[in-house]
Amino acid sequence: MKKYCKFIYAFPLIAALLAHTACQANHPQIDNSTVKQLDINRYMGKWYEIARYDHPFERGMSHVYTEYSLLDNGKIHVVNKGLKNGKPKEAIGKGKQPHPIEYPGRLKVSFFLWFYADYYILELDEDYQYALVGSSSDNYLWILSRTPEMPKAQLDGLLQKIIQRGYDVSKLIFVEQ
């Protein structure tokens, strides 16, 4: 009886480990490491959305861009704009850089009360002309540019970096600008 009881108690742990292993095999680890240096002032301004993973809060939107501005208190004012069914849509939010020294590329953004989401700057052009943004998971990904279109060579290079990081480029939706 004792051996049977030990198995019953161990079964949930074994099942959890097997499920975790199977999940890891189906979803290989992504590299969501962020940039090591970020001049937050240079990052401010207008960024056009070149491509993104699909998610409900931007589904069906085109002509999407975001404007960031640094406030006196160090917080970031965020304005997302775009068109949905030909009508302008706007979302105003706030951002912050919780650990500017340790993790300069890890920001937090909120569009609702105090609920902040990860905003990881994964790649950033040395001239701050394009950026790759993700999160702590592989569910979110954006390609941003200072201009409504990116040169093909630049975009192709960024797509290669996305693949090397373990993201699925086939999930990208290229945004009409």
Rank of each mutant, 00 (worst) to 15 (best):
C5G: 05
K6S: 03
I8M: 13
Y9S: 08
Y9G: 12
F11W: 10
P12F: 00
L13M: 12
I14S: 05
I14L: 14
A15Y: 06
L17P: 01
C23V: 08
H27Q: 11
P28K: 01
D31I: 03
S33C: 06
V35I: 15
K36N: 10
Q37C: 06
L38F: 05
I40E: 04
G45A: 02
W47N: 01
W47E: 00
W47I: 01
W47D: 00
Y48I: 04
Y48K: 08
Y53M: 05
D54H: 13
H55N: 15
F57G: 00
E58S: 10
E58R: 08
R59T: 12
G60E: 09
M61H: 03
M61E: 14
V64Y: 02
Y68H: 10
Y68R: 12
Y68W: 10
S69L: 10
L70Y: 07
D72I: 05
D72S: 15
K75P: 00
V78P: 00
V79A: 06
K81E: 10
G82V: 10
K84L: 12
E90C: 10
E90R: 15
E90N: 09
A91G: 03
G95A: 11
K96L: 09
P98V: 02
P98K: 03
H99P: 03
H99L: 13
P100K: 09
P100R: 10
I101G: 01
S110W: 01
F111V: 06
F112M: 14
L113T: 08
Y119S: 04
L122C: 03
D125W: 00
E126C: 07
D127N: 15
D127E: 14
Y130E: 08
D138E: 14
L141G: 06
W142K: 06
W142A: 02
I143N: 07
L144D: 04
S145Y: 06
K152M: 08
A153P: 01
A153W: 11
L155C: 05
D156K: 15
L159S: 04
Q160C: 05
K161W: 08
I162N: 07
I162W: 14
Q164K: 15
D168I: 07
S170E: 11
K171C: 03
I173E: 15
V175S: 05
V175R: 01
Q177K: 12
